[in-house]
Amino acid sequence: MTGSSPRALTRAAGLIASVAATLFGLILVTFLIGRVVPIDPVLAIVGDRATADTYARIRSELGLDLPLWRQFLRYLVAVLQGDLGTSILTSRPVLDDVLRVFPATLELATVAVVIGAALGIPAGVLAATHRGGWLDHIIRLLGLIGHSAPIFWLGLMGLLLFYAKLDWVPGPGRVDVFYEGLVDPRTGVATIDALLAGETDVFWSALHHLVLPASILGLYSVAYIARMTRSFMLDQLRQEYITTARVKGLSEVRVVWRHALGNIAVPLITVIALSYATLLEGSVLTETVFAWPGLGLYITNSLLSADMNAVLGGTLVVGVVFIGLNLLSDLLYRLLDPRAR
């Protein structure tokens, strides 16, 4: 046992406590949102011609005659057991629904974050090495533009340009219509399922369908990733080891892309994890535009049919994933950066 382990233990305990408290708050918030809904859940089940007896019986079955804190306790226990209620729209458990649609969102957000990082990191590095120059200004301006356009509008305009006018990409949906249901959804990720089934045609179709929505979603994170990369790089380029490397006669390319970029890998990973979380959110609007059958489309469809169990269940799951990604970025940082240990 080294001397640092009690500190590490306290820190881990603090982390667990903070995550638990946040989760508790999350569940409390969704519970309270569910309580202020103007829809009477009893009336929704029994209909308006039920007798007062039936009404009262259903009401007590749902636990609505209990004091608010008892109702919350019931809700808390149910949620912790994975019971998010039943969806009115699909009449299936909300958790099953969410697990079924979640891989589609994951696929979209993952490809989007890869695109965001592939464009954002080089852009940030170039902006830092050309600080104050025209390249820096252009990258900053492009970032601002990307951050100012409504993502659903970009999606529609993307469809108009690349699908209707240029015919470079297919229309909305996940695969071409005649491929739909051909592949067994083993993982729920269309591209991987197609590969697992050995259907290369379906794989290419799925990939084709992924390009436009993922690029538009990814564009959203480019600005953030580029800005953070730029500021990390500027910090590094001021350090003495960079001067040393230059004095040693290393090429500028090697100094910048190998030494400086190598040293900001850890903070960059946390930035990417954080933008992954925001992309989950952006996927709500993107999925609506591209008829992408993921969690975002599920939540909005449930909203429009006043299916509160599904809305709140979906919100809760997104919140949990959000907390999870924040925690992951925190842990990765501590694990990978020796100074943070």
Binding site: A21, T22, T278, V284, G314, G319
Partner: peptide
């Protein structure tokens, strides 16, 4: 700050969606 963190832990748009769903 705990309350603040809880609200920060929610994605903004999704939380706004849930609120609007509840309020109408």
């Amino acid at each position: 700050m705990r309350v603040t963190d809880i609200f920060l832990a929610f994605p903004k748009l999704i939380l706004a969606l849930a609120f609007v769903a509840a309020l109408g």
